[in-house]
Every structure is written in structure tokens, then in C-alpha cells.
Design a protein around this nucleic acid. Structure first.
Lengths: 224, 224
DNA sequence: GAGTCAACGATTTTCGAAAATCCATCCGAT
DNA sequence: ATCGGATGGATTTTCGAAAATCGTTGACTC
């Protein structure tokens, strides 16, 4: 949400980035309790910056807090997955609609460029090195951010970014899930084409379906 | 957003509540810098809990942070007012639609009860004691929360609550604004009637218009 | 006179230890 | 045997001071 704060400017920022990364990658598992002693050892710093990092993470939904009982990794559930998906379809759908109708040439360039970067990496293959998977996640996020970047509403963008992070945890939980049954790259291409063709409604519909499919695939994983 | 945390369980919670109240009431003005020394003196505690309180407030948009330069009260602008209003119309509109179609008898009761409490206090009169105004604000928030309380989406509710707080600052900035030209109580009554009549679209439309009028009134104030 | 750079003061940020709190366990009484 | 209440250990929360950082002031050079 705030690039200035995830950088190496303060120790609290470092702790925030480190813990967040371990939660998103699954190294810290949902529901797991996070003790200060462990986190201090991990980050190599005192309790104060760790505490601030956890406060931020809690505000963003990555962790939960119980007064005088400490912090835990927020747990995942099928209900929350459905809930987050619906909220994304609403908010990001509207943001995309606005962006498509308002975007200028620079926005078109961003959409093209980020999609190009994304399309260079195949997805859904289990044998990829984890560095490459990490890279794909980053480019995927960049593409979706570019799509809505011209919506003109910082508030909406902030909401979308938070929801994206939240959904991210579910996707990463199941690494290579439905590579065969689904053409994710094709969905992304269609998204880009409709956006650049200035078909706001069509693009929004494609986005909603894109998220619907993702959620459906994850539901199957969850049931197992 | 989190009742457990605003209570008196920890000093950080107290500081959060105290500072937030001073920001919302306008005693801490938009853009004003918040020094730790002052806040410590105000809250009667050390720097640690104050720091945690500011971290939470920043995550909710009440304050901003500049690394190594401290915290300030988030400033208000016409642009942000419009932005927040649009986001509220989108998110709270959808939440209301869902709530109206899903709400059970208990929800109807909550809507009726909170509207009754709200209707007992006149609004827009400058000569009311500030205690009563504060009371109106509280009941107003309770009514709007009740309306969407049956939407079934915790994520959406959290978003709405955050946006409500953010819009709240604008409303409180201008105390008695348009008492003559506008029938706020009537708008609230219509909102309640349509909701209880299970007219989801009508209620959502009324809500959007309600927020549109509020924003318009505030725009006039801002221009002056 | 304009510009550069070092030292200062004000403030934030971090540390390490002390205080407070919670949970589990154990003891004794009914 | 079960319940109520005190005790201890583990952990969070808070404190007060030290360290780090930023903007500024002032001297010094060109």
C-alpha cells in the first residue's frame, strides 16, 4: 500500500516486509501464533519495531491480535475466500470500468507493457524454480494494478490493493492447481484486449469471471 | 472496526481512542503535526503505546507518516471528499442491496430501533449542546451500520465502516450547514421505509442520493 | 553575494529491562 | 471427586533512556 514504508528506511519497515513475506509465502501458516521472541530473533532487532510491524499487518488483515495474548497469522476459510472474491468483483470491477473509460495513452502503454512481461512466464507448472514463481506473482500483481491504474480514485485503488493482497494468500496456498483445465494466460489476454478496445463493460465482465474461476478452483482445493 | 481494541484493555487502545476522538472532533486540525512529546503528555503514558496508536490511525487514514519525520493529521480536500463519496456510494450501496434482500426479522428490528433513536434528536441546529451533537453522530452511525448489517459480508462491512469514519471528518468539519435547505430526517425515514419494504434497488438509490446531497452541501462549504 | 559543508538542536526511532497480564497447575476444602 | 482460589512460568505490554536521523543554522570558500 505504501512503498515508502516497506523500504529499508526504518527497522519497522524491514520487519513489516519480512513478516509479510513469510506469511504470504506460507512459511508462517494460517492460525499460527507469532511470539515476539521468535520474531525478534528472526529480524534481528528489538521488540519495538516488531510490534509496529504487527500493528500494520493487523490493520491490513494479515494477522489478528488478542489483547495481552499476542498476535497470530490470520486464518483462511472458504467463507472468507468467497467474501473477498465478491468484494473484489465489486470494487475492482468498478475500478476497471472507470479506468477503461478514462485511461489515456500512458495507461494503454502500462497495460501493454505489464501484460507483455507477464506473458513471458508460463504459469501453472510445478517444475518452475520458486524464484520464477515469485517473479510471476509480482508481474501478475503489476498487470492487474496497471489495468485499474487510470480509475482516478486513490481510495478505490487502496481498497483494491488490500483485497488483492488478501486474495493472494489463497492463491499461493495451492501452488500449481489447475494448469490443465484453465487457460489463465488466455483470460489475461482477453482482459487486456477488451480494456484496450475501450470496452468497459466487457472488460469488467471478463474480470469478474476471471476472479470467479480463480475462486472456484480454490474452492475445489479447499474441499480436499 | 474493532471494539475489543478501542476499549480500556491496553494503554495503546486508550491512546488510539483519545487521539482519534480529537482528530474527529477537529481539535487536532487537518495537516497539523503530532509530536510524541505532546501526545505523551496528553495521554499520560510513554512513547510505546502512543506509537502503536498512531500506527493504527495511519492504517485507517486518520493520520499520515513521514519516515523519521513523524506523524501528521491527514489533511482534507475536495478531491478526497468526492473520492470517498463515490466509493461509499459503490460499496455501501451494494452492501445495502444485499442486506435488504437477505435481512431477517432481527435485522428489521435493528433498523427500526436505531432509526427511532436517531429520529428523537433534531439535527442541523446550531444551538444544541455539543453533548447532544455527539450523541446524534453516534446514533447516525448506528443507523447506517444497522441498515447494512445483514449483508453477510464482513469484508464489505469493514470497508464501509472505514469509509464512514473517513467521511465523518468532513461532516463534522462543518457543524450546522444546511439545516434549512435539506430534510435529512426525511431522507433517513425514506431509507428506512424502502429497506423495510424490501425494495433493494430503491433503498440503494436513496442511499446514493443521500450521500450525494451530503457531499454537495459540503462542497459548498469547502468552496467558501 | 551565492553555494557548500559541518556541527547543532529538535525529534523520531530503537533498545533492554521492568511491570503487568494471562494461562495452567496445584493445593485444600466441601 | 469437584470446585475455588492462590502460585508460578511464560508472554505481552510498557517504561525511560540511548542511538539515529532530519532540518537548520552558521561559518567558510569561491
Amino acid at each position: 500500500m505504501d512503498e515508502k514504508r516497506t523500504g529499508g528506511k526504518t527497522l519497522a519497515g524491514d520487519a513489516y516486509a519480512a513478516i509479510r513475506q513469510k506469511i504470504r509465502s506460507g512459511e508462517f501458516r494460517p492460525g499460527e501464533r507469532l511470539r515476539f521472541a521468535d520474531l525478534q530473533a528472526l529480524c534481528g532487532m528489538s521488540v519495538t519495531p516488531v510490534r509496529e510491524a504487527l500493528a500494520r499487518l493487523t490493520a491490513e488483515g494479515f494477522t489478528t491480535v488478542d489483547d495481552h495474548r499476542g498476535y497470530s497469522v490470520a486464518s483462511l476459510s472458504l467463507e472468507e475466500l468467497r467474501d473477498v472474491t465478491a468484494a473484489r468483483q465489486l470494487c475492482e470491477g468498478e475500478a476497471l470500468r472507470l479506468s477503461v473509460s478514462r485511461g489515456d495513452a500512458a495507461w494503454e502503454g502500462r497495460v501493454l507493457a505489464t501484460h507483455h512481461m507477464l506473458a513471458l512466464i508460463p504459469q501453472g507448472r510445478d517444475d518452475l524454480p520458486s524464484v520464477m514463481r515469485e517473479d510471476w506473482e509480482e508481474r501478475h500483481a503489476a498487470f492487474h494494478a496497471a489495468l485499474i491504474s487510470a480509475c482516478g480514485s486513490p481510495v478505490l485503488l487502496e481498497i483494491c490493493e488490500k483485497l488483492f493482497s488478501r486474495a493472494d494468500r489463497y492463491r499461493r496456498l495451492s501452488v500449481s492447481l489447475d494448469g490443465a483445465a484453465r487457460d489463465v494466460a488466455g483470460e489475461h489476454r482477453m482482459l487486456m484486449e477488451r480494456a484496450l478496445a475501450r470496452d468497459a463493460e466487457g472488460a469488467a465482465a471478463a474480470l469478474r469471471e476471471h476472479y470467479g474461476r480463480t475462486a472456484a478452483a480454490l474452492e475445489a482445493f479447499f474441499a480436499a
